[in-house]
Design a binder for these strands. Structure first.
Lengths: 212, 212
DNA sequence: CGGCTTGTTATGCAAGCGTATAAATACGGC
DNA sequence: GCCGTATTTATACGCTTGCATAACAAGCCG
């Protein structure tokens, strides 16, 4: 009667990552309130008590999960920039487009973002994670813009560059949200095209053509 | 001993509104998970059981609260447009600025928005409320843009107008989020100025000067 | 191959949740 | 002034949650 469940011992890092991944799945599917310790454990294939062996409490697990998704989003947005050494304006155009198409502009990713953002106001630790991600994103974007302006022989001073980064970041974020929340209202690739066109106009640099 | 609490009977509409307002306060302060029936009732100055007398369940109360805040935000954004019969481009500039300053660009309002957005994915009713608000906002914005283009002798066809509305909506939303989440990173009025400047460039219409 | 460590399961607990229901009281109509 | 009604309070129930702890076994070390 009541046979005890068989199990395997996993490496510490592996288990932690599995638990984080299970947490992200739960948040994405049923919102942050669907991410109970029992649901997370079930999805990770362990029992709930084990979580306390790897994280001091639920809060720390959520923070780790949020940090993971923030880093992943920033990573996905930028890592392809190293692909081809094309011109800065093509790289910028590709960057904008990448942020407005899969896998970044995805309902599941947005669900994660929204779930955590809602909690960030009540949890300073989550808020700090968000700010770090935001500033990191904007810094890298600023560098990308500096390259583009330089290639167009229109170097900008620090203040102008910062304001441009703020504006372009807003365009990307805003379109990203529109696409995630109401993707069915737009044709495939429409938001990416609008994004490239809009950013181009804001910078005064044509991004759409092949452009050297 | 154990005196029963005194109370006053309020009109139905008044009580419903009080409960909704208390719900919004709770969500704004401690996130949507802080909006328990007991906390809401405490803030509204009643006992928890009463809520069930005015709403079938907690879900319906949350939906009513979300509908209220969505309508309020849209209202605040547009009602001042009737103030002075100035030129369309001044009206547009004022509209952009209004969305990026108090009381719309406010941490509490954002906290509400974020709290509900996080739940919208799991609750189709909330999702519908959001979409209605979004489309309403965009429609009114589109009308504002049409006026502005007309006054500049550059009428746009329906498709171009729609794309412009999508882009401008994204700029406003994106800057709004930046301001709400990291307001301390910007000077007073800086985001409004960036917004006006950016929208002007996207439309190809100068919005900053007095401009007829 | 037997013991030790510790990753893992199993069980329990107190608190808080949304909901249901009965008792009480405020207040308008007579 | 009193009665009837329905708003409001009070209490309880069943469930779920995060957390604590004890029992157990997997796998390494000798």
């Amino acid at each position: 009667m009541a046979e005890r469940r068989k199990f395997r011992r996993e490496g510490e890092e592996r288990r932690r990552q599995d638990l984080i991944e299970a947490t992200l799945d739960c948040v994405a599917e049923h919102g942050i309130e669907g991410a109970t310790l029992r649901a997370i454990a079930l999805r990770a294939g362990v029992t709930a008590g084990l979580i306390r062996h790897y994280f001091p409490g639920k809060e720390e697990l959520l923070q780790a999960a949020y940090a993971t998704i923030v880093e992943r989003m920033t990573q996905q947005a930028f890592d392809f920039l190293d692909d081809g050494a094309t011109t800065p304006r093509l790289r910028l155009a590709a960057f904008v487009a990448a942020n407005l198409t899969l896998p970044i502009a995805d309902a599941k990713v947005f669900s994660l973002w929204a779930g955590f953002i809602g909690r960030a106001h009540a949890d300073p630790a989550l808020s700090a994670v968000h700010r770090e991600g935001y500033l990191g994103f904007r810094d890298q974007l600023e560098y990308l813009l500096a390259e583009t302006f330089a290639s167009a022989n229109r170097p900008q001073n620090a203040g102008a560059l910062r304001r441009h980064a703020i504006a372009v970041n807003a365009i990307i974020d805003g379109l990203w949200i529109e696409g995630c929340m109401a993707g069915d209202l737009f044709e495939t690739g429409e938001l990416a095209q609008i994004g490239i066109e809009t950013v181009g106009r804001v910078l005064g640099i044509e991004l759409e053509g092949a452009g050297a």
